[in-house]
Simulated scan of single mutants.
Amino acid sequence: MANQLESVSKSYDKAIDFGRRGIDLYEDLPEHITNHPDYPIFQRLKMEGSLSDSGRKEIKEYLSPDTNMKFVDLGCCLNLMFNGYDKWLSTYHGVDISSKTIQLLNEFVTKRKLPIGSLYCGSIHETPFEDNYFAIGACVGILEYFEKDFVEEAIIEAYRIIKPYGRFVLDIPNFDSPIFRITKLIEEHLGRPDKFNMSSQEFDTMLQNYFEIEKKEKVAGMIQYFLVCKK
């Protein structure tokens, strides 16, 4: 697990460094990816801006962020910058393993003078927050990097910091999707291979101890879950 956390951290640090220089690592892919039969679908969705499921309006509608709510974004990446989370009424707290991601977000927050809660560099399975601290939360585009044991640790941590009946959104890979098949190849090329090794049925069973599943939706090669904390 430690090695995978380090790989994910280094990969996203590299992406930030290249992004600051105007280089998109998704534009320079090897032939075994660009010649793959699923690649045209990936290209089309990328051009449409439909690859990420973090900025879906359905997330905001479900979580219903309000001024009296604290929101935790586990594995936040650059959601605050690019997916509209900076405009939510709730108080934003971001957690990410990439130190350069957190650095860039801090620059963004300072420049825009955003009244956020905190930005924490660390793993989603060990956060510094108190029990029952957040009314709402999300963990989107993260769990696919990890195997079952770590995934359950992350779920337990989310359960710990979310309030009773708090709402939570997360996603896992849709192994039947051609989009996931091609993005898995790309993620491996970028140095952060997908390690998720559970069926959706196994994952649902794991969740039952911690969250009630209100609905599931298939989007962008993933299965997105809309959950309520069962405390």
Rank of each mutant, 00 (worst) to 15 (best):
N3A: 14
Q4F: 08
S7E: 12
K10S: 09
A15W: 06
I16R: 11
D17P: 04
G19Y: 04
R20N: 12
R20M: 15
R21Y: 07
R21K: 15
D24H: 07
D24A: 03
D24T: 05
Y26H: 01
P30T: 04
I33D: 00
I33S: 04
T34L: 09
F42Y: 15
L45K: 13
K46M: 06
M47K: 14
E48G: 03
E48I: 07
G49P: 08
L51N: 00
L51M: 03
D53R: 11
G55I: 14
R56D: 12
R56E: 15
K57L: 07
P65Y: 15
N68M: 12
F71C: 09
L74V: 14
G75S: 07
C77K: 10
N83A: 10
Y85E: 10
D86R: 12
K87T: 14
K87R: 14
L89C: 07
S90A: 13
Y92W: 05
G94D: 02
V95E: 05
V95M: 06
D96M: 04
S98L: 02
S98D: 06
S99C: 08
K100G: 10
T101N: 13
I102H: 05
L104V: 13
N106Q: 15
N106W: 06
F108R: 01
T110P: 04
I116W: 13
I116A: 08
G117T: 11
L119E: 02
G122I: 14
G122K: 05
S123N: 11
E126M: 04
E126W: 00
E126Y: 03
E126T: 12
T127D: 02
T127E: 03
F129W: 12
E130Y: 09
E130P: 00
D131I: 05
Y133A: 14
Y133N: 12
F134E: 10
I136G: 09
I136M: 04
A138D: 06
C139E: 00
C139K: 00
C139S: 02
G141E: 00
G141T: 01
I142S: 06
Y145R: 01
E147F: 03
E147R: 14
K148W: 00
K148C: 00
D149Q: 11
F150Y: 13
F150C: 03
V151A: 02
V151N: 03
E153L: 11
A154M: 01
E157T: 00
Y159M: 03
I161K: 02
I162H: 01
K163L: 06
L170N: 02
L170V: 07
I172M: 01
L185V: 08
E188T: 13
H189M: 10
L190P: 05
L190S: 10
P193M: 01
K195A: 04
F196S: 03
M198P: 03
F203E: 00
D204Q: 11
M206A: 08
N209C: 05
K216L: 02
A220G: 01
I223T: 12
Q224E: 11
Q224S: 13
Y225I: 01
Y225R: 10
C229A: 15
K230A: 15
K231E: 08
K231S: 11
